[in-house]
Each structure stands twice: as C-alpha cells, then as structure tokens.
Amino acid sequence: MEPVAGSLLAPLLLAGAAFSNHLTDSYGATANYWAIGLHISCWIAQFVGHGIFEGRAPALLDNLVQAFFLAPFFVWMEILFLFGYRPGLQSRIAKAVEKEVDKFHQSKLHGNGRATNGKIIRTIASLALSLAVYKYAHGDPDKQPLLTRWLHYYDSMQEDFKRKTYMNIKFVEEAGKDRHLFETAPFVGHMELKFPE
C-alpha cells in the first residue's frame, strides 16, 4: 500500500523481533510472562478507553485484520506525518477520518443504541473468550503456560536436530577418512579371492 513507509518500518520490526529473541534467550519464560501480562493489560486498557472516552467498541470487534495489521500501520503513518511525510496523503486521510467521525456522531444522535448494546455484548464476550484461552493455556499439570510449553518443545526439537547434524557430520568425516585411507594405501598387486570349499 505504501512502500516507502513500509520500508522505513521494516528495520524497526526486525529490531523488535531481535530484541524479543534476546530477552527470551536472556530471561527465558520470565520474559514471556511479562510480555503476555503487558499485552493483556494493554488490551484491557484499550477496551476501557474506547468504552469511556469514545463510547464505542474497538475496531477489533468489527474487523480483526484492521485491528491487528492496519491500525499499527496507521499509527506509523501518523508518526511519519508529524515529520512532514506526504502532506497530500495526510489531508486525504484526515478528510476520510472526519467523515467517519461525523457518521458516528450522526448515528449516536439518531439513537442507534441497539448497535452500541450489541458491541458492548461482543466486547464482554471477547473478554470472556480471552479469559477462557488464558485458562486453557495454564491448564497444564506443571502449571506452565502454553507459550512456554511450545518454546520448550521447539528447544527440544532444536537439540534433536543438533544431535542428528552432529552424527551426520561424524559419519561424513569417517567416510572421508576411509576414502583417504583407501586411496593412499600402497598397491599390493593382484589379490585372489576364493570361495571356501
């Protein structure tokens, strides 16, 4: 959609992924606990903020793709607009947002309470679903979260892969030694092989 802005964002995303890997390597499951806790706290704050200050449900309930992919990119575009990036695009987006805000205010004036109640119910249902997923993730007898169990499984697969790779390297080295021994051995002449009688 916006190749220049996306190219500017890519190094930040890669740096964030590298830093997340560093935290996981350094602190193990503790880093995951903090990340999941912060993530859940921010989602709750977003629901509360939308309910109190905007009086409407978050975009998450209308469109998951918009909430997870387009909204962060929209925030990135806002940051770029602060530095003077593409003022024409900024004015077009501002006009489109203004139209949407006017439509929202008009729907509130005409008493569109049913839709608001439906969104509130969906918000409560999504919070209940989030709690159910959280409980399921902690349903292991060892009391390890689901993500931690997945990471341990991935680590065990890596260890198995390292062991197999090490064995393959050893087999190749032995085959190389045998070949070298065969090629450098002195020629002893003709050898007769007989079957035992």
Rank of each mutant, 00 (worst) to 15 (best):
V101L: 09
A35W: 03
R86Q: 10
L109K: 14
A45G: 10
Q90K: 14
H50L: 01
M77V: 04
S20F: 08
E54M: 12
K99D: 15
Q46L: 12
H39P: 00
K108S: 08
G111N: 01
L38I: 13
E98G: 15
G51P: 02
N112V: 03
F68M: 13
F69P: 00
N112C: 07
H105N: 14
D102A: 13
R86Y: 00
F73N: 01
K95G: 06
G51F: 04
L89G: 01
L23T: 06
R92Y: 11
H105T: 09
A57G: 11
N63R: 10
F74K: 07
H50V: 01
G51K: 03
G37T: 13
G111A: 02
H105I: 03
S20T: 12
G88F: 05
L60T: 08
P72E: 03
A31Q: 04
A18C: 07
L23M: 13
G88M: 03
R86M: 09
A31Y: 07
G55D: 02
L89S: 03
A31E: 01
A67M: 01
L80R: 03
I79C: 10
A17T: 14
K99G: 09
F47W: 05
G51V: 06
N21T: 13
D62M: 05
H50K: 01
L80I: 00
F53D: 09
E78I: 07
I40Q: 11
G51A: 15
R92T: 04
I40Y: 10
L38A: 12
Q66Y: 12
N32P: 00
S26I: 04
F53L: 11
L109C: 08
M77R: 02
S107M: 06
F104A: 07
L23N: 05
I36M: 09
H50D: 14
G51S: 14
E78N: 14
D62T: 06
F73L: 15
A67Q: 00
G88A: 06
G84E: 06
L38R: 11
P72S: 03
Y85F: 05
A17L: 14
A59Y: 05
A71T: 14
E98L: 08
K99M: 12
I79N: 09
L23C: 11
G84M: 04
G55M: 03
W76Q: 04
L109W: 02
S20C: 10
F47V: 14
A45W: 04
V65R: 02
W34N: 06
G84P: 02
T24Q: 13
I79S: 11
G51N: 07
I44C: 13
R56D: 06
G88N: 05
L38W: 10
E78L: 15
G55Y: 01
F81W: 04
A35E: 01
R56L: 05
A96V: 07
A29V: 09
H22M: 09
A29T: 02
E78H: 11
I36W: 02
A59K: 07
A45D: 03
R92I: 02
N21I: 11
E98C: 11
I44S: 11
F19Q: 15
N63Y: 07
